[in-house]
């Protein structure tokens, strides 16, 4: 373990996340607290949990960076960064070589392209509409009366051929109710809505260009149907980090470690390896995969290869 302890806090619209790293960027602890709405209490609980798990107090920290919509509410944060910068930083560390990060949070979704240096190249985010965000999935879960945790499995069992014409979070609920009134199968409804949401995300991706490898982060990445339909819409494999909700907080902690103004510092990623076993499966860009064990180790992917599809 290397000296120095750094805290990253991601205060989002529905959850607070905290990650503690050491001077090498190794994750010492993390927490995810569901708030329901932005709350200082929820944020403090996330910080306390992460610090407690690492056996630290706030006075042990050499730096704190906050991110998320509530980033300016985090006490003690030496600096704030947007979720866009933090998700790019954290994801590039977890999945070296990533070129496109799609983050679907509680109330917004973002498409972020990442350069060779792990820095943001371009980004797009929804700003007027909850379509395609975590909120939209919550609306769907409520309408079909299943817990949000079971929504993905339900959707994977259904057929996705129903027509979903409205992607407005309000009007889609009305449409789902009328499908239920027509005795449509709930699994088919869930599946079709997932397909429609993926198409919506594709439109966001089109604004920055479709690049591979693709990584999905945010709470929605835990929904297997969301991953499946996004992968199909993009026609590319979509990688999900082991803990997709904390990539922003992890990126914030790394930025705290990196020092003033985000100066990149060489990182020993072994810590991240231990915390996040490399996910199996990555985008295929035409190279020979024989003998590959499916991990993203050095030399298995040409990191310079970027496939712009729609520019």
């Amino acid at each position: 373990m290397t000296g120095g302890r750094y805290l990253g806090v991601d205060l989002g619209s529905t959850t607070a996340k905290a990650v503690v790293v050491d001077g090498a960027g190794k994750i010492l602890s993390s927490s995810v607290v569901t708030m329901g709405a932005v709350s200082r209490a929820g944020m403090q609980r996330a910080i306390d949990q992460a610090l407690g798990e690492a056996g630290l107090t706030e006075s042990d920290l050499q730096g704190t960076v906050s991110t998320g919509y509530g980033r300016r509410l985090v006490p003690g944060a030496g600096r704030t960064y947007t979720e866009i910068t933090c998700h790019a930083r954290g994801t590039a560390e977890m999945v070296p070589g990533v070129r496109l990060v799609i983050d679907v949070g509680g109330q917004d979704s973002k498409a972020i392209t990442v350069g060779d240096d792990g820095l943001v190249r371009d980004f797009a985010m929804n700003d007027r509409c909850a379509s395609g965000t975590g909120r939209f999935y919550e609306v769907l879960a409520r309408a079909v009366d299943v817990p949000i945790e079971g929504l993905g499995d339900l959707a994977l069992r259904g057929s996705d051929e129903l027509e979903v014409s409205s992607m407005c979070a309000t009007f889609a609920e009305t449409e789902i109710v009328s499908m239920l009134a027509e005795d449509q199968d709930v699994a088919d409804i869930a599946s079709s809505v997932h397909r429609a949401i993926a198409a919506r995300t594709l439109a966001l991706v089109a604004q920055v260009g479709r690049y591979t490898p693709v990584v999905l982060t945010g709470g929605v990445a835990r929904n297997p149907a969301a991953v499946h339909f996004l992968s199909r819409a993009l026609d590319a494999e979509v990688t999900v980090p082991a803990h997709p909700q904390i990539t922003g907080a992890f990126g914030a902690a790394l930025l705290a470690r990196d020092g003033d103004r985000g100066r990149p510092v060489a990182t020993d990623v072994r810590g991240a390896d231990e915390m996040f076993p490399r996910p199996r499966g990555h985008a295929h860009d035409g190279h020979d995969c024989s003998g590959c064990d499916g991990t993203l180790g050095p030399g298995t992917v040409d990191l310079g290869t970027v496939i712009p599809a729609w520019r």
């Binding site: 919509y69 960064y81 947007t82 979720e83 866009i84 910068t85 917004d108 240096d117 820095l119 943001v120 980004f123 985010m125 929804n126 700003d127 007027r128 103004r261 985000g262 100066r263 990149p264």
Partner: peptide
């Protein structure tokens, strides 16, 4: 304009510019 979403997008642009300055490369 949804100002908070706009603020995030603008800050991200500023961060992107700062992190691409030669001094921080």
């Amino acid at each position: 304009i949804p100002l908070e979403a706009l603020r995030t997008r603008l800050e991200a642009l500023v961060e992107r510019a700062l992190r691409h300055r030669p001094a921080y490369a």
